[in-house]
Design a protein around this nucleic acid. Structure first.
Lengths: 244, 244
DNA sequence: CGGACGCTTCGGCGCCGGCCGAAGCGTTGC
DNA sequence: GCAACGCTTCGGCCGGCGCCGAAGCGTCCG
C-alpha cells in the first residue's frame, strides 16, 4: 500500500499533463481560442493572429495535431486546422470559463469596439454566445422550450418548436442534444449541444445573422431582428448592436 | 481589421494558458488526479504520492492555490488542500477523458492489483466511477430513472426512487442535478452531478461501499451487494471484485 | 522544555521549450 | 519557366521552470 504511490502515480492513469501543457502556452492557447469559432484556419492566419513567425506556428500546430487536439487538412499549399472534435471544444470552453480575464492595458478604441462586438454576439465553436446567445437561452427557458430543473433538457414543446421552424437537429449517440455552455463574457449559461448548433446553423441559413469580417463576432440582421423578436420575444435592446 | 489581431489576442479574453499551465506539469497533474477523490490531502501526503521533495510540493501548492484551482485549510501544523469546486473537478475529468493513457512499463503485480481495484470501483471527486459506477448509471437508465434522450435528465420515476430510498439530494442553483461524466477506464458515461454525489454519499452512509485503504478505490460490501442487486438489479459479476 | 514533525524559504543547478531568421521545398499563377 | 506564396526544417539563443537540499519556523507531544 501507499509505498508504491510515487511510482504508480507517474506510470499509470491518464496523462493529464501532456494535454494540459499543449494549452498551457500563450500562443497555442490563442490558437485554441481562435478555433473556437468552429471554422478551419490556415497556419499563416493563426501565426498572424497570435503574432508569431510562421515557423513557430508550424511547430505549435505539429504539437497540437500530434496531441490530437487539432485535426488538419491539406489543400494545395494551405494547411487548414480545426479543433479535433466537440470534446476538445468543451474542454477549451471549460478552461475559458475558469480562467481569469486578462487585464487589458488601456486598449485602443478599435480594440474596444471589437471587444464589444464579441461580447454582443459571437459563435462559440458551433453555437451562439454573447448577450444574444444568453438571451436566446433565457427566452427558450421562459417559453417552456428548455427545462433546467434536473440538468438541462429539451421539453416536448421545445421539440415541437424546432420542428415547426424546420430546424433539423443532427443528433448523435456521442453528443447530447442540449448542453449548457458557460459564457466567458456574460458568465451565464447559453445553449450548446446538437440543438444549440442546429439553431446557430439555422440562423446563418436564414440570414438572421452574418459574420463580422473574419472574426467570431456576428451581427443580427434586420431579418434576424424580426424573426427573433416575433419568434422568441427577444427585447429590442438585446437585438441592437449598441455602437460606441 | 485584422491588423490588431496579434496584440488583441494577447491582451484580451480569458487567460487559458495560465490555468492550463498549472495542470501541464507532471507533479501538479498528479496532485489534481489524487484530489479527484474529493477528499482533502496534506502537503506531505501529496509530496509522497507524487514522489517529490516537500519543498517542491509546497511551491506547487502555492501556485495551485494562487490560481484558485485548489483551496487550502490550515490545521495546526498541517496544510490540507482540496479541489476548489466542482467546476475544477469537471475540468480535470474532461482532461482525463481526453488524455492518452500512460504506458505502464511492465508494472508490478501489486500495481496491477491496485489498477484493477480502481477500474472496478472508485470515487470520482464526489460520485462513483469504474465498472460499478457505469453499471449503476446503466441500471438507472434501464429502469427509467434516467433519461438520455435530450441531454441527461432525472425522470419523475427517478425522483420518486430517490425519495423512497431516503436519498437527500443537495441541489444548488449552480450545480446540475444530474450530469454525465466520462469514465477514463470504461470510456463510458456514469452519473455525476448533485444526484451522483447524493447516491455515492448514501452508499457510504449505508455501508454499501467502503474505501480501500487511503486510495480512491472502494469495495462493495456484502450489504452493498444485497442492496444494489435487489434495488437496481446489478448483475453479480459486476458486484464481485474479481481477484487475480 | 526538548525533540519530532510538518511545512516554508532560499539559493543554485540544469534542462526543456518557445522564439527567431535563413534556407529550402512544394504549389499556384502569370 | 519564373516569381510569389505558404509552409517546413534547422541551428542557435535565451528565459523560465521544476527540482533539490539546507536551514529555519511553527506546532504538537511526551
Amino acid at each position: 500500500m501507499g509505498d508504491m504511490d510515487a511510482k504508480s502515480a507517474r506510470t499509470s492513469g491518464p496523462d493529464l499533463a501532456s494535454v494540459a501543457r499543449l494549452i498551457g502556452d500563450e500562443t497555442r492557447a490563442a490558437f485554441c481560442l481562435a478555433l473556437l469559432d468552429g471554422r478551419a484556419w490556415t497556419a499563416t492566419e493563426l501565426a498572424r493572429h497570435a503574432g508569431v513567425a510562421a515557423s513557430t506556428a508550424t511547430e505549435h500546430l505539429n504539437a497540437l495535431v500530434a496531441g490530437s487536439l487539432f485535426t488538419e487538412e491539406r489543400q494545395g499549399r494551405h494547411r487548414y486546422v480545426r479543433l479535433a472534435n466537440q470534446q476538445v471544444a468543451e474542454l477549451v470552453e471549460n478552461l475559458a470559463a475558469l480562467a481569469p480575464e486578462r487585464v487589458a492595458p488601456v486598449s485602443s478604441l478599435s480594440a474596444a469596439n471589437r471587444r464589444q462586438a464579441l461580447a454582443h454576439a459571437r459563435t462559440c465553436y458551433d453555437h451562439l454566445a454573447g448577450v444574444v446567445g444568453v438571451a436566446i437561452a433565457d427566452a427558450m427557458t421562459e417559453r417552456g422550450l428548455l427545462n433546467w430543473a434536473h440538468g438541462l433538457a429539451l421539453t416536448e414543446a421545445g421539440g415541437k418548436w424546432l420542428a415547426d421552424l424546420g430546424i433539423e437537429v443532427r443528433a448523435s449517440a456521442r453528443r447530447p442534444a442540449v448542453r449548457s455552455c458557460l459564457d466567458w463574457t456574460e458568465r451565464r449559461p447559453h445553449l450548446a449541444g446538437a440543438v444549440g448548433a442546429a439553431v446557430c446553423r439555422h440562423a446563418f441559413d436564414r440570414g438572421w445573422i452574418t459574420r463580422v469580417g473574419s472574426t467570431r463576432a456576428v451581427t443580427v440582421t434586420d431579418t434576424g431582428r424580426e424573426a427573433l423578436s416575433s419568434g422568441l420575444g427577444l427585447p429590442a435592446e438585446v437585438l441592437e448592436r449598441r455602437r460606441s
